[in-house]
Amino acid sequence: MKTISVTINGKKLQVPENYTIIEAAKEIGIDIPALCYDPNLDKVGACRICVVEVEGARNLMAACTTPITEGMVISTESKNAVETRKEILRLLLDNHPNDCLVCNKAGECKLQEYAFKYDVKFRQHDGERRQAKVDNTNPYIHRDDSKCVLCGKCVRTCNKVEDRKVLSFGERGFETHIVADYDNLMADSSCVSCARCLAVCPVGALMDARTMGKARVWETTTEDVKCTVCEYGCDFELLKKNGKVYAVRAKSPVEGRPLCLKGRLSVDLTYNEEVQVPYVKKDGKFVEATWEEALGLGKLLSKLGK
């Protein structure tokens, strides 16, 4: 691949010509804030947190979608870029519940991280806010629409698997929200609880229901494991508190790895020392199940005489 030269924050570097600004910046360790960007997903340029100043450009440019060009001079933390970034963060906070104290995502929430980095605080206002609409009808997925920043990563990752495509955008403008099928509750949708969306959500809008209230991030240590249910071998993390595994978590589903509920439950059962009862969907309703049922082992076990 041909390389071209760009200057980022005063530093000159050579990068492959098909890079975007955010990728080029990463090469020299500059992490440009971004909520909707994910190297494994299509680039959409939606959150606009990643806007940077490019010499000669009329407007600020989204670092995640703007391809670099020869001789481009970029400033990721110019006064204008930072002020704009702060105002966008403020706009997001204006429409976000001020409950970081009790939010399970605290400590690994991207919105929190950037608010801290740029010193942006919640402020009082009488304007409209997103409706608090917690959907915990799916025993594996805790969904809180009031925390959603509409980065759309969940939609994109869900749509990567051809026969899923459960999540999409509904309505528009300020009313825009993520919908499952025809704006159904998660339990009533065609969602198969694969957890792809949980793995990519940058805020507390989509969380693993089985980890809720168990531990804070800073009390948690992790260990990487691989699922062995099928040949894809999806990556998981064991979440430990005081050395004891209290939950497992799917890592981001990179190219070609679908993630699935069966895999997650298998890892859960294998490693979790406080494993919770599994649920399966029967006639459209989630019901408690035995592990044999949940993992589809019934016939195998009886054949093995167990």
Partner: peptide
């Protein structure tokens, strides 16, 4: 504009709403 914003990007979706308010 608020009525017709598509809702994709933050400045337009959230910002025009606050301006209208």
């Amino acid at each position: 504009t608020v009525e017709e914003s598509c809702g994709k990007c933050t400045p337009c979706r959230e910002g025009t709403k606050r301006m209208l308010e």
